[in-house]
Write a protein that binds this DNA or RNA. Sequence first.
DNA 1: CTTTATCTTTACGTTCACGTAAGCTTCAGC
DNA 2: GCTGAAGCTTACGTGAACGTAAAGATAAAG
Lengths: 174, 174
Amino acid sequence: MRVSPTQPEQTQAGARPDSLRIGDVARLVGTTPRTIRYYEEIGLLPEAPTRPSGQHRIYTEAEVERIREVMRLKHLLGVSLEELKTLLTAEEARAEVRAQLRRDDVDPERRRELLTQALGHIDRQLELVRHRASELAKLEHELSETRKRARRKIRGLDAARDGTFPPSEEMSPL
Amino acid sequence: MRVSPTQPEQTQAGARPDSLRIGDVARLVGTTPRTIRYYEEIGLLPEAPTRPSGQHRIYTEAEVERIREVMRLKHLLGVSLEELKTLLTAEEARAEVRAQLRRDDVDPERRRELLTQALGHIDRQLELVRHRASELAKLEHELSETRKRARRKIRGLDAARDGTFPPSEEMSPL
DNA sequence: CTTTATCTTTACGTTCACGTAAGCTTCAGC
DNA sequence: GCTGAAGCTTACGTGAACGTAAAGATAAAG
């Protein structure tokens, strides 16, 4: 555990602090620095507005988590980065909500509005995910059915080989 | 504008015979002729060995179904066409099996071998599909959890606004 | 047999999602 | 304060998956 408050450490594999640089982040989420920069370039990831051009990017653990989530969604939904961007509007909105909610000085009217908006975005994601999931489930079912048929046929052959049953089985379309 | 009464009666949706041409097929499966030719070019779809160069491609209903399946797998699994090609080796093997099995003159030894091979391919597909499905299910669960929290918060706000319990203004669309 | 839509092959163009190289700067460790 | 690894910007390159255009051939309708 850390003892001193400001201890500059190397950003190695076991590093604690938020001195994560782009290379570390890339390793952590299983990608390359170029990809992260690219995502920032096309607006998929937010760019820190404070950083002067030329200075290194630094990332917090939360940002790493966000990037990981982006990768995951891309992989699971298989959408283009452009579609993903619109989908992630939900994420941004929710981040907005969280930021606003942390400050107590927003009126409940605005709160409700933000939350409802976020809810809508979540619903959009959910619908997409559920649709995908059901399609996949259907495919899985079909495949396992086909598998059963194949196994039955093999067992039939084996039984016939052992001389117990005549191989007079008519075949169903595989 | 040309509003000719001579309506070229092409191979329409109600057409019976297997005179399906590439344009019809493309419409049927929701893609373009170019894509179908491309898939044939890279070996994802088989090319009829009988067709002399320059002659039109013709497709049977079964081939259309196959193409549809290829599209579906591509869409659902989100793999590259190269990966998809190796995956579809299973399909080819199973087609091989079907062809061989239709002729009775193959010995059971060979039959069993083919079937077992096909089974292995099916298993590979199944594993991939199941993995995807479980990942998606996890994502769905997380999303719906987040949704629940958002809804709770909204209800809480509504309750606070009315001082009492909220009237069921609009319930969830689910 | 003529028309006309659709198809053929060939080949170059395009978009997406990054990879890679160059030249220079920043930063952590000594 | 130096030094080398890693990062920065800019820009060109690349593979996958098609789009598109050209020039001619084919096939179904009239």
